[in-house]
Simulated scan of single mutants.
Amino acid sequence: MNRHDEHRPLVDLGNERPMVTAKARIMSPIVPRASISGRALVAVVAIMTFLASMTTGAVLLISASAAEWQSDVASEITIQVRPLPGRDVERDTAAVVEAIRSDPGIVDVRPFSREESAKLLEPWLGTGLSLDQLPVPRVIIARVQPGTALDLVGLRARVTKTAPSASVDDHRAWIERMRSMTGATVFAGIGILALVIVATIISVSFATRGAMAANRPIVEVLHFVGASDAFVANRFLRHFLRLGLEGGVIGGGAAMLTFGFSESIAGWFSGTPVGDQFAALLGTFSLRPSGYLVLAIQAVAIAAITAWASRRTLLATLDDID
C-alpha cells in the first residue's frame, strides 16, 4: 500500500482475502476476466465461427462457380451431325456451319474434325480404339452474342432442313440441373449455419448460467444494496460480448487465412486428378474481396448472437434469483 492509499477507506473481504481500497473494489469486474469457463466459451465460439465461415465460404465459392458455368454454357449451343446412309456427313457438316453463320445472333462457329469429335469419346471408351467403323457424329460449337435472344425454333428448323440428322442443344436442361444443385447447396449451407447458431446459443446459455451460479453471492449482494437487474445484466453482457468478439475474431480469422492460402494449396496440386477436379468444381478456390467482407460480418454477427443469448439467459436467471 503506497502513501496515497493511507487515507482511503478499506473494505473487509474476509480473512482469506487481502484488504483492498474501496476504489479498487469498485473498479474490479463482477465477472472474472479470465476463467476456465470463459476460455472454454471463447474456444467454442471460435470453433463455431470457423465452421460457419467455412460453410459460408464454400457456398459462396460454389455459387460463383455455378454462375460462371451457367454463363459460359448459356453463351454456346452445340450441334451434332450424325452420319446417315446415303448422305455425306462432311458435306452436311459444312452446310450446317454455313446455315448457322447466317444467323445474326451467332458470333463464332467452330466445327470439330472427325479426330476431335472422336477424342471427345475417350473418357468413356479409352484410347487406342479404332473408331473408323463407328458412326461418330460431328460436333459444331456456336457462340451466341451476349444479350441476344436467339430464335432457337427457327435455328433448329434451318439446321434440320439442311441436315436431317442434325440436332441442336442449347444446354437448357443442364443449366436447370445446375440451378437446382446450386439451390440445394445454398439450402444445405443455410441449414448448417442454423445448426451452428443454435449450438452457439445453447453453449452461451450454459456458460452464462454457470457464471451466474459462480457469482450468485455477488449478485445477491448487489440486489441487496439496490442494484437493478439492468445494471447486473449489462456487466455480464459486456463480459460475454467481449468473449464472443474474441472467439469470432479467432474463428473468422482462421477461416480467412484458410481461404487465403487455399489458392496456393490448389496450385501445388495443379495437374493432378484431385486438383483438376477441385479446379473444375470450385475454380481457383479463392474468395473474392466481397466474400471476406461477408465472413467478417458473420463473425461480428455471431458475437452479437452470443451477447443476445447471454442477455436472455441473464434476465431469466435474475428473475429466479429475485
Rank of each mutant, 00 (worst) to 15 (best):
His4Tyr: 07
His7Ser: 12
Arg8Ile: 05
Pro18Thr: 05
Val20Asp: 09
Thr21Tyr: 05
Pro32Gln: 09
Pro32Asn: 04
Ala34Ser: 15
Arg39Thr: 04
Val42Ile: 14
Ala43Ser: 15
Ala46Ile: 12
Met48Arg: 00
Thr49Glu: 09
Leu51Trp: 10
Leu51His: 00
Ala52Pro: 04
Val59Pro: 00
Val59Trp: 06
Leu60Pro: 02
Leu61Thr: 10
Ile62Cys: 08
Ala64Thr: 05
Gln70Gly: 07
Asp72Glu: 15
Asp72Tyr: 06
Asp72Cys: 09
Ile77Ser: 10
Thr78Glu: 15
Ile79Lys: 03
Pro85Arg: 08
Glu98Ser: 12
Arg101Glu: 12
Ser102Thr: 15
Glu116Ser: 13
Pro123Glu: 14
Leu131Gly: 05
Pro135Tyr: 05
Pro135Asp: 10
Ala142Ser: 15
Arg143Asp: 14
Val144His: 01
Val144Trp: 08
Pro146Asn: 03
Pro146Lys: 06
Ala149Leu: 02
Asp151Phe: 03
Asp151His: 03
Leu152Trp: 00
Leu155Tyr: 02
Val159Met: 10
Val159Asn: 14
Pro164Ala: 08
Ala166Asp: 07
Val168Gly: 13
His171Arg: 04
Trp174Thr: 07
Trp174Gln: 09
Thr185Glu: 05
Val186Cys: 02
Val186Gln: 06
Gly189Glu: 06
Ile192Cys: 03
Ile192Val: 12
Ile192His: 02
Leu193Thr: 14
Leu195Val: 13
Ser203Gly: 00
Ser205Gly: 13
Ser205Tyr: 09
Phe206Val: 11
Arg209Leu: 03
Ala211Val: 00
Asn215Asp: 05
Pro217Gln: 06
Val219Tyr: 06
Leu222Tyr: 04
Val225Asn: 06
Ala230Gly: 13
Phe231Arg: 10
Val232Glu: 11
Arg238Pro: 02
His239Val: 07
His239Gln: 15
Arg242Asp: 04
Leu243His: 10
Leu243Asp: 13
Leu245Asn: 01
Gly247Cys: 05
Met256Phe: 02
Phe259Trp: 07
Gly260Tyr: 12
Ile265Arg: 00
Gly267Arg: 02
Gly267Thr: 06
Ser270Lys: 09
Gly271Glu: 03
Thr272Cys: 07
Thr272Pro: 06
Phe278Asp: 01
Ala279Lys: 14
Ala280Tyr: 12
Leu281Trp: 08
Leu281Ile: 12
Ser286Asn: 13
Arg288His: 14
Arg288Leu: 03
Arg288Phe: 02
Arg288Tyr: 01
Pro289Lys: 03
Gly291Lys: 11
Leu293Asp: 08
Leu295His: 01
Val300Ile: 09
Ala301Pro: 02
Arg311Val: 08
Arg311Phe: 08
Arg312Ala: 05
Thr313Glu: 07
Leu315Phe: 12
Ala316Phe: 05
Leu318Trp: 08
Leu318Gln: 15
Asp319Glu: 15
